[in-house]
């Protein structure tokens, strides 16, 4: 695991300059900001009301009125893609939040304490990793009821060991450093050191991993919705839109193309963003790309 440089020691201007010279970062950043903006905009305005079904307008091809066409209920696909972004982001973001909220403290604790505590945390990690994630998420949502909340929990659980592992590895690399040793010698307790020195230094690592898990979360939500276990109507969701599109692939391909593209572009953007951040902060990056 290569550890990023300490952000705190680098001048912000240089960092920004380096960021905007990085192609992956720029593309990823633009895509991510656009998707988020689209989702935010959908709270105030969408071209059409996505909760109103107009059966008479069903499966219309893309036109000036309906840029992305309409679905089998006559809803505007552009509007649904916009509101669907809200759903995907919310589910994936909260799932990342769960993963970080539980995983990072566990990982930091394991690194700070070591010994049997470390062993327990790592074994719990192994345990969660042993379960096939998607299958288990399907099992959880199917048994405890389909819906956004259970989807978040099902995806979030599998984010926990990822963050625990990353933060533990990051923290373990920080602990032997001189300034930490100095702080320990000065009598600061482990919790304080973790909060003051370790966390800020692994923050970028977590940011990179967070972006990746965010992207994976969007894919996982799409998969769950596709099998009918994610968010329920009337809330539009990209995965369910694809499910509804598949019986009409030959007569209304736009029903499949636009939500599909929305997923691909969003995930692509987030992955590029993650790569970009890693590149910018990784001293080895200049050698690699």
């Amino acid at each position: 695991m290569t550890l990023p440089v300490d952000v705190s020691r680098e001048k912000p201007e240089r960092l920004v300059a380096r960021a905007f010279a990085n192609r992956s970062f720029v593309i990823g950043f633009v895509i991510a900001v656009s998707v988020v903006a689209m989702a935010l905009l959908s709270f105030f305005w969408t071209p059409f009301d996505v909760t109103k079904l107009v059966i008479a307008d069903k499966t219309q091809a893309p036109s000036l009125t309906h840029w992305f066409g309409t679905d089998h209920f006559g809803r505007d696909i552009l509007s649904m893609v916009m509101v669907g972004a809200r759903n995907s982001i919310a589910v994936a973001l909260v799932a990342v939040g769960i993963g970080m909220g539980i995983g990072v403290p566990l990982g930091c604790l394991a690194a700070a304490r070591g010994g049997w505590l470390d062993e327990i945390v790592m074994r719990l990690n192994d345990l969660v990793f042993a379960f096939p994630a998607l299958l288990s998420a399907i099992m959880i949502t199917a048994i405890f009821g389909p819906g956004a909340v259970n989807a978040i929990i099902a995806i979030g659980i599998f984010n926990i060991p990822v963050f625990a592992r990353v933060s533990r590895a990051g923290a373990l690399a920080i602990w032997p450093r001189e300034y930490i040793l100095a702080a320990r010698a000065a009598g600061k307790n482990r919790t304080l050191i973790t909060l003051e020195h370790v966390l800020p230094n692994i923050a970028t690592l977590l940011l990179v991993q967070g972006t990746i898990q965010f992207a994976l979360g969007i894919l996982a939500e799409a998969s769950l919705s596709y099998v009918g276990l994610g968010s329920q109507p009337p809330m539009p969701s990209w995965g369910r839109m694809l499910f509804e599109a598949q019986t009409r692939m030959a007569i209304a391909p736009w029903m499949a193309i636009f939500p599909g593209m929305a997923i691909v572009v969003t995930v692509l953007g987030l992955n590029l963003l993650g790569d970009g951040i890693a590149d910018i902060l990784d001293p080895k990056s200049r050698r690699r790309s």
Binding site: A215, L219, A222, S223, Y226, G239, L242, Q246, M249, A250, A256, G260, I263, V264, V265, T266, V267, L268, N271, L272, D275
Partner: peptide
């Protein structure tokens, strides 16, 4: 490769079905 990672496999599967089977 970046795009490959981002494509949901069930969506890709649908495209394959319509192209190669139908």
């Amino acid at each position: 490769a970046q795009i490959g990672v981002a494509i949901p496999n069930f969506w890709f599967a649908l495209m394959l079905i319509y192209l190669f089977a139908v």
